[in-house]
Lab assay of single mutants.
Amino acid sequence: MDPFVVLVLCLSCLLLLSIWRQSSGRGKLPPGPTPLPVIGNILQIDIKDVSKSLTNLSKIYGPVFTLYFGLERMVVLHGYEVVKEALIDLGEEFSGRGHFPLAERANRGFGIVFSNGKRWKEIRRFSLMTLRNFGMGKRSIEDRVQEEARCLVEELRKTKASPCDPTFILGCAPCNVICSIIFQKRFDYKDQQFLNLMEKLNENIRIVSTPWIQICNNFPTIIDYFPGTHNKLLKNLAFMESDILEKVKEHQESMDINNPRDFIDCFLIKMEKEKQNQQSEFTIENLVITAADLLGAGTETTSTTLRYALLLLLKHPEVTAKVQEEIERVIGRNRSPCMQDRGHMPYTDAVVHEVQRYIDLIPTSLPHAVTCDVKFRNYLIPKGTTILTSLTSVLHDNKEFPNPEMFDPRHFLDEGGNFKKSNYFMPFSAGKRICVGEGLARMELFLFLTFILQNFNLKSLIDPKDLDTTPVVNGFASVPPFYQLCFIPV
């Protein structure tokens, strides 16, 4: 058959498939802009700032609406009420993970971030239990974070109060905490193996944040037939998995079943207990991918939040002064901060919360999916439909947070200066898919920041009023603009 005829037939089939998918069930789905064949609503979305586009569309179609990214149908949730109703009140029905062709290629359905069903539930339950087990290797997770915080302070001392970009050092600290939990080992910041790991993690975040990856996920045929950065992403992930597998083999040879040292040991012990169960989800494949998931999810998000926190503290020296006064009063100079201190430091706690609220790190979270046909607000959402959640619409709700575009710790303080919780605080998402490392991340943010401010004054290279804190939105995360500062020993 003539190649031209084959091409026309293929394009015609794709067009018909697109029209059929977009028209099927439209009477039951939430409203939304009319999609174009094949490309859907992509032309109506700013790929570099999806969150802003969703906010604009919500003003037209309401808090629940339908979009098509290519052939992929998505239902968008915008605003606290619908997000709570879906992710919390109907948590089980909305607990699936959205379709990610690239991740599915890399992870093969294993791990904790992109798995679904029984596998996801069992691996998540085990990971939560293990991360909360403060007795691994007779050292609590808090001990590990405190140790890394001391190392971080010593690295900052080496800058000798000269101007520096904190990106690298602030990236090393949370990565080392995860390494300590998974591998029972922290690395020197100049260790070549550690630097290679950091390089792969950072490069992957840069790649994932590009519009090209959005295109690959919406048109998965590209993955096999086109060159691009997605190939580098898959190569980096394969490198990390190979490295983790080597460490798993080392653990198998040296493990003491009665004295687990780290996450890998705990997983291997669980595998041993379930070795007679042919349906067990505790396999080497799941261990390797879960460890890679924890490394990827637990490094860049925390380091970016820390980097943004220091920029905001530079911009608002009056806030920094209040935090340091609270540190001096509650902790002093002669001991290290600990998590028990947080309950006695409402202002510092409010500042950490406000940093996370203000920066809105992951504006749309990772997409969910419905696990069955769901009736939601008089609409029928078919099983498997991807759910896109606007966390921006919750964290920047102007009824809950007056002047949401302003950095103001009073958003989390009552009139008496006591810490005030808010149900709208969802930087880790909400419901059954809430970030498994939430507790660890909150511990790291509090301890790293208090250790830094206990030991250093922060000095800006320019007038604080002239510092730009506008986030650089890159399609996946909101990151701070480049800046330098000086760490002046107190």
Rank of each mutant, 00 (worst) to 15 (best):
Q279G: 12
F451G: 15
D408S: 07
F376W: 08
D414H: 07
T290C: 10
N474M: 12
E400H: 09
G416N: 15
P30E: 01
N423D: 15
I331K: 03
K190P: 06
P480R: 05
Y68D: 10
K185H: 10
L43I: 07
F94S: 02
K249C: 08
K138T: 14
V351C: 09
A297E: 08
D408P: 00
F401D: 00
L391R: 01
E326M: 02
L15F: 06
E155N: 09
P382G: 04
I42S: 12
I182K: 01
R139T: 13
A238M: 13
G25H: 14
V394L: 11
D224Q: 14
D188T: 10
P471R: 10
P481G: 09
I42G: 07
M271S: 09
K28L: 12
C435D: 03
F267L: 02
P260R: 05
H316S: 07
I257C: 13
T159P: 03
P464Q: 11
H251F: 00
F110W: 13
L234M: 12
Q192P: 10
I181F: 14
K84I: 07
F446C: 00
P3C: 10
L287R: 00
L233E: 02
C435A: 02
R206L: 09
R125E: 13
E155S: 09
P37C: 02
S390D: 06
I387R: 00
S162K: 15
H368T: 02
D360M: 03
D360F: 01
D262K: 00
N286F: 00
G343K: 09
E325A: 14
L237V: 11
G62S: 01
E92L: 08
L294C: 05
T130S: 14
E354M: 02
F476L: 11
R97G: 03
R150Q: 14
D2E: 14
D256W: 03
D341F: 07
S460Y: 05
E415G: 12
E285H: 12
G417P: 04
S303M: 09
R125Q: 15
C338F: 06
G111P: 03
F126E: 04
T159C: 10
I452D: 04
L380F: 15
A161I: 06
R342A: 13
L237K: 15
